[in-house]
Design a binder for these strands. Structure first.
Lengths: 210, 210
DNA sequence: ATATCCAAAATTGGCGCCAATTTATGCTAA
DNA sequence: TTAGCATAAATTGGCGCCAATTTTGGATAT
């Protein structure tokens, strides 16, 4: 009985338009500043009007899009000060748990991080910008998860989205990407060696230049 | 021309049902765990069904209420671990900017903080729990604003709401309230004296016991 | 030729209805 | 008397329509 219900429940969490729009903002498909017309989104994502509106409202709550009453929603573009402030927050949080990360990291964790850092490396040459972006996310997620504070992980994931509204375009220079990759390895090495001071320093520099 | 528009713009930002429900959750009128039926809210706040649903969706996004599909929304009650994790986050952020707070505080700022701390003191005896709660919020808002990072202020305001779902009921013991008040004064004194270490310590203890 | 004003088109946003699901109630059978 | 089931009530949630506002295009007057 209730085949449909069963199907729904077993099925991976039904993806919501919010995530689709979010992904397109993150990957730069929807450029910062551009207006998000409800009709366009409705067609693009093959969904209904109320769904679009709910998604836009959610993204506005997260300050990823800005809402102008009776005018519509447009992709938010953080000014320099806001970006700097958010970076500051990330540095406080991520360096603040650096010692916990180093303490909790098992040999297997270090190995997994090495692999993720290597994957990022590899994708610099072979992958698309989007793949690179996602590999970066995966690395940082794994790294931060070691701190043991899942609320903090969620929070940082959230505010990381807030800064890098157009992360793909930001990484235009090869030199900068390679620098990022070096810092990834630097972090892993610091963890493996238990050098929390070096880890904090690497994290700090990494966030500042991102 | 456009009298209405003018009126609307000049008028204080039209308050939204979300804030009303939020306030009632914060002050404990809507108890943790209780179900928020759409019909009840619709009547209680004299608003339409879609407004209620939008508000509930927003509060669910902020994790102040929990959504169970086809069952409804109920006030979120954080378990011990989550509460501890959120406290940990607040300590990282608020002690992290303690030096900035101390550095930026002018004589007038210190005076204003003294006044807010005194107001809290006074309300312990004379005020209602809600007034006390709001005086506490005002003190902390003023204090944190001195750090100069407005994004951080917004963020902490947001996550502070997340921990203390029923702050009024938490403060049942007089002893605890008075301890809080002492710590307020302790913080102000530390700022006035420029003793950042003492400030960090006071903030840390204050958050942990809250 | 250009600025201003008016009208039409497009877009946003509010509201109510109805289907789907869940919960409560009462009835029947063991 | 109690457990199970079926039916009814209540609640949630999706969808579409229409009003309100804004924008665009064009016509007129200076």
């Amino acid at each position: 009985m209730n085949k449909v219900k069963q199907r729904e429940a077993n099925n991976a969490t039904a993806i919501d338009v919010t995530d689709l729009i979010l992904h397109d903002i993150q990957t730069g498909v929807l450029a910062p500043g551009s207006w998000l017309k409800q009709i366009d989104l409705e067609q693009r994502y093959q969904c209904t009007r109320p769904e679009v509106r709910r998604a836009l409202d959610r993204l506005a709550q997260r300050r990823l899009v800005e809402h102008v009453p009776n005018r519509g929603y447009h992709v938010f573009e953080p000014d320099g000060r806001q970006a700097a402030e958010v970076s500051e927050i990330r540095i406080l949080l991520e360096t603040g748990v650096a010692d916990k990360i180093a303490a909790n990291a098992s040999r297997a964790d270090v190995e997994a991080l090495r692999e993720l850092a290597a994957r990022f490396d590899k994708l610099i040459l072979e992958g698309t910008p989007i793949e690179l972006y996602e590999a970066n996310l995966a690395f940082h997620y794994r790294l931060l998860s070691l701190c043991g504070n899942s609320e903090l992980v969620k929070l940082v994931t959230e505010i990381r989205q807030r800064t890098s509204s157009a992360p793909v375009s930001q990484w235009k220079t090869r030199a900068r990407i390679e620098q990022s990759s070096r810092e990834h390895h630097e972090m892993v090495n610091a963890i493996a060696a238990g050098e929390t001071a070096a880890l904090k320093d690497a994290i700090s520099r990494h966030i500042r230049q991102d």
